[in-house]
Simulated scan of single mutants.
Amino acid sequence: MTSEQKAKITELRTAGFGYANIANTLGLTKNQVVSFCHRNGLAGEKSTQATKGKPDVGCCKNCGKPIVQVPGRKQIKFCSDECCQSWWNAHPEAVTRSADAVYSFTCACCGKPFTAYGNRSRKYCSHACYITGRFGGDGRE
């Protein structure tokens, strides 16, 4: 656990966030967060009286900013489109992909084998090969 994660746990816990919510936000396990909180005096029961009548508040998976959840609607995970995009770019392993949509090809320019997801009609392995194959050069003037 990094010092940045420890500081964020302290910040979120003092703001009233739960262990699981903090763990999901920081990409840690709930047990790691619970252990850290118990060692550093951040443990405690969440008061049902304090949360009664307040809207459900989560936090952004990317930056940790508080997000107010609207009852009766799908829960949101990110505070903005920018946070959503940057999180998914940083976590490509979290993308669920169908094995049926992975296609194998041989590049029409360089002859190297390559795979592509979701595109049955690829000819080239890269943009550089496309330029060479299509225009007969490196594409520079």
Rank of each mutant, 00 (worst) to 15 (best):
T29L: 06
V57I: 13
T115V: 10
S35V: 12
A108P: 03
Y124H: 07
E45V: 15
R120E: 14
A23R: 02
T29R: 13
S121C: 06
C37V: 02
T106G: 08
Q49K: 15
R140H: 14
A99F: 07
K77L: 12
E45I: 15
E82G: 09
E45M: 13
S80L: 10
T25I: 08
K61G: 01
V95H: 03
Q75S: 13
C63N: 01
F36V: 11
V57N: 05
F17S: 01
T96M: 11
G53M: 05
Y103N: 02
G18F: 03
I9D: 01
K65D: 11
V68G: 04
A7D: 15
P71S: 09
T48N: 12
H127D: 13
K112Q: 15
R73F: 08
N31C: 06
I9L: 02
A101K: 13
A23H: 01
R13T: 02
R13Y: 02
A20F: 08
S47M: 06
R97D: 00
F135L: 13
Q75L: 11
K74A: 13
V34E: 11
N119M: 07
F78P: 01
W87H: 01
T51C: 09
G139P: 05
S86Y: 06
E93V: 00
S35F: 07
V68Y: 05
G53V: 06
E4K: 05
G58M: 08
G139L: 05
F78W: 06
G27V: 01
Q49M: 11
E93C: 00
V95K: 03
N62P: 04
T132R: 11
E4S: 12
F135Y: 15
V102M: 09
G27A: 02
T106S: 11
T96L: 12
T10C: 08
G133Y: 03
P92S: 03
K46Q: 11
V34M: 10
V68A: 11
R134E: 11
Q5A: 09
G18M: 10
T96V: 14
L26V: 03
I76K: 09
F17R: 01
G58Y: 07
G41H: 07
A15K: 15
A50K: 15
K46W: 06
G139D: 04
A43F: 10
T25D: 08
G44L: 04
Q49C: 10
T10M: 06
V33P: 00
C63P: 04
K65W: 07
G53D: 04
